[in-house]
Computed example of a mutant assay.
Amino acid sequence: MTILEGQVFWGYDYDIYNKSNFMKSIMGMFSLMPPLHQYSGRVVLTKTELIILGDTDLNIPLYTIDEVYIGFDEIFPASSVKNLGLFWQPLRVKFRADETVYMVIDYNGINTNNKIWFDALQQILQ
């Protein structure tokens, strides 16, 4: 049973970390550029897993999720987002103890649905 579904720009922490500091510092200056990412596709949330389908597929069973966080950090800085994150922040999911993905869901050039996804994941994981 699908709870949420959307378009996603995403990458593992090491993918985002390896983007040049120059790119991270100027990405927020351009309106038409997509957010920092390595892959894109569709994301689906069910009662039991988070599924990403697209350039690279990823299935994350919900019981393996250790942390869900919305906000910036040293890997995905606010400087990489237009208006320094006034309208949206990346969604970070840590799972299987040592894996982390950053997601930007339903990005339309101004904002995202990351907060909706964050709230839904928090509620399911309680």
Rank of each mutant, 00 (worst) to 15 (best):
M1V: 14
T2W: 14
I3L: 12
L4H: 12
E5V: 13
Q7A: 13
V8R: 09
V8Q: 08
V8Y: 05
V8G: 08
F9A: 06
F9K: 09
W10T: 06
G11T: 15
Y12G: 13
D13M: 14
Y14H: 14
Y14P: 06
I16P: 00
Y17P: 05
N18H: 15
N18F: 15
K19S: 12
S20H: 15
F22Y: 15
M23H: 11
K24D: 07
K24W: 13
I26K: 12
M27C: 05
M27E: 06
M27P: 00
M29N: 10
S31W: 01
L32G: 13
L32N: 06
L32E: 11
M33P: 00
P35H: 00
H37T: 02
Q38M: 07
Q38E: 13
Q38R: 09
Q38P: 02
Q38Y: 04
Y39P: 03
Y39A: 06
S40W: 11
S40M: 09
R42Q: 10
V43N: 01
V44D: 00
V44H: 00
V44K: 02
L45G: 01
T46Q: 01
T46C: 01
K47H: 09
K47T: 04
K47Q: 03
E49H: 05
L50K: 03
I52M: 08
G54K: 04
D55V: 02
T56R: 06
D57A: 08
L58S: 04
L58H: 06
N59H: 05
I60S: 02
P61H: 03
L62T: 13
L62Y: 07
T64S: 14
V68F: 15
V68W: 08
Y69W: 10
Y69S: 11
G71L: 03
G71F: 03
G71P: 01
F72E: 04
D73A: 09
D73L: 04
D73I: 07
E74L: 10
E74P: 03
E74R: 10
I75C: 12
I75G: 11
A78M: 04
S79G: 12
K82N: 06
N83T: 10
L84H: 13
G85C: 03
G85T: 05
L86K: 14
F87D: 04
F87N: 09
Q89C: 01
Q89I: 01
Q89D: 00
Q89F: 00
P90W: 04
F95C: 11
F95A: 10
R96C: 15
A97H: 15
D98S: 08
T100M: 05
Y102D: 01
Y102W: 04
Y102E: 01
I105Q: 07
D106H: 12
Y107N: 09
G109R: 03
G109M: 04
I110C: 07
I110A: 14
N111R: 10
T112E: 01
N113I: 05
N114T: 10
N114G: 05
I116S: 07
W117Y: 02
W117I: 05
F118H: 08
A120H: 08
L121G: 07
L121A: 07
Q122Y: 02
I124P: 01
I124G: 02
L125Q: 10
L125A: 11
